[in-house]
Amino acid sequence: MKAKRYFMLAMMIFAVAFVSCEKDEDDETCDSENLSEDFNCPIDVDAIATFCSDGVSNSYYTFAGNDYQCTGVAAATCDEALNQIGVALLEAGCGSKKKSGAYDAGMIKLSAMAENLLEEVRMNSVCN
């Protein structure tokens, strides 16, 4: 009788743990991002980080097996996390700190090719 009770209790704990794990996974969406260009990394440095967000209150970056917590739900709240990843990338041989700053519109430097394309988008995307 006692064994049966222990067995039932163990199964209940396991079921609760199983359901909790499943829920976490389903609520989260993740996106891979190559930070190589942003941090001027040589080609042999793996600079792929993953951004995950639950869309409600939490987001974080995962890089080289470590999680870097953001302060909100959006990628724009991850400056501190990206700075920490930047330090790890610098140690791995990347050139400099993030070029584009904290996505400050005034600091975004576009390549000549992107500027040309932007002009083409302006001129050729709709009828005048």
């Binding site: 576009l110 390549s111 988008v121």
Partner: peptide, 27 residues
Amino acid sequence: KYGNFEKLNELLLLEPKVVYSNEFEEV
């Protein structure tokens, strides 16, 4: 749907951070 998407697609594939720029907002 209403215009020509190809050039924008090319731009976003080339440099996705463009969306954060003032120039993109102007376009």
